[in-house]
Structure formats: structure tokens, C-alpha cells
């Protein structure tokens, strides 16, 4: 894996986060949450720093990162698109909406477009089942999305 150079500023921020949790191994998940909000994802380099700070093995940190779907080792797009595939959304046609996003963006779930603009992921229920099917772009929620509406959503971000 190509080595990434972490900026000194962010590195310091990360160390401060670990310290704020008393460098306790038991706080690993809280630390990972903060780390992901600093870097946007959790590359191997970040995991190594955390392992060192919390006095844990890198394997342990990696084991935890890969266990939880919230943590990612791939950078998200500028506008991360999440499609809810919870039961309510599924029953109301979320799969077709997902297909349309895949088709238009030419990427698979878990991937990011070449220009870094969009990434695609699936969610399990955001708790807005009344609006099914639901799509989130960043923090913004779109309800009752149909395949026809996909183009419109994308064009909001495409200039």
C-alpha cells in the first residue's frame, strides 16, 4: 500500500483526541469515530498512530475498524450518497433507485467516482421510513425518491 503522509496538524489533532480519552484502549471506538471525522476515513497510517497511542496492537485496531461498517478505509467522495436499503425502503423500490445511481455514476457500492465527487454506499434504515425510499447526500435527506428523480438529485451537485 502506498504510504500516505499525514499532515502534522492533523496528526497532532489525532494525538490530542487519544489523550482526551486518557489513551485508554477501551475507548478505541470513540477514538476511531473522532479520527474518522478528522481524516474522513481511516487509512492504515492513522490506525498505526492510534495503536501506538493507545498501546494496542495494529492488528487489534484493524480488527475493530474492519468489524464495524461505519468505519471506512476508503476516502469518501465530496458528496457521499447513501441509499437506504432498510425494509421499508426496499419494499418501496429502493433497489431500483440504487441501480440508477450506479448506472449514472458508473461506480459500485463502496466506490468513489474518479473525480472524487461522489461516493456510493448503502444504509440500513435512517429512521425515516415514512419517506421511503430515502436517499442521503451528505447530511441532506431526500424522500420518496424514484429512479426518475436521480438525475435531478445529482445535478444539484454537478456544477
Amino acid at each position: 500500500m502506498a504510504k500516505i503522509k499525514l499532515s502534522d496538524k492533523k496528526l497532532q489533532e489525532l494525538k490530542d483526541v487519544c489523550k482526551s480519552f486518557n489513551n485508554e484502549k477501551g475507548e478505541l471506538i470513540n477514538v476511531l469515530h473522532k479520527a474518522q471525522s478528522i481524516f474522513g476515513y481511516l487509512p492504515a497510517e492513522v490506525q498505526e498512530v492510534i495503536a501506538k497511542e493507545l498501546n494496542a496492537s495494529v492488528a487489534h485496531v484493524y480488527g475493530v475498524v474492519t468489524f464495524y461498517s461505519f468505519f471506512t478505509m476508503i476516502p469518501k467522495g465530496q458528496h457521499p450518497i447513501s441509499i437506504c436499503l432498510g425494509t421499508a425502503c426496499y419494499v418501496r423500490g429502493a433497489e431500483k433507485v440504487l441501480e440508477e445511481f450506479r448506472r449514472q455514476l458508473k461506480i459500485q457500492v463502496g466506490e468513489t467516482t474518479a473525480d472524487g465527487k461522489f461516493s456510493l454506499s448503502c444504509l440500513r434504515c435512517v429512521g425515516a421510513c415514512g419517506l421511503a425510499p430515502v436517499v442521503m447526500v451528505g447530511e441532506k435527506v431526500y424522500g420518496r425518491v424514484s429512479p426518475d428523480g436521480v438525475q435531478d438529485i445529482l445535478s444539484e451537485y454537478n456544477n
Partner: peptide, 26 residues
């Protein structure tokens, strides 16, 4: 407050406890 990180099995109480301990939620 302790945060989950997107694993359904962590709703199971023993897994939940391991997750709160900073481990894989098994």
C-alpha cells in the same frame, strides 16, 4: 454515552458490552 459503529449484532447484549469495551462486537 457510548457510540455504536454500524453493526447490527451489537444490539445483542453481550456483543454490545464488548463493543463498549472497545472490542469487536462479537
Amino acid at each position: 454515552i457510548r457510540y455504536g459503529a454500524g453493526a447490527f449484532v451489537c444490539g445483542e447484549e453481550t456483543a454490545l458490552i464488548h463493543s463498549m469495551e472497545g472490542l469487536r462486537g462479537e
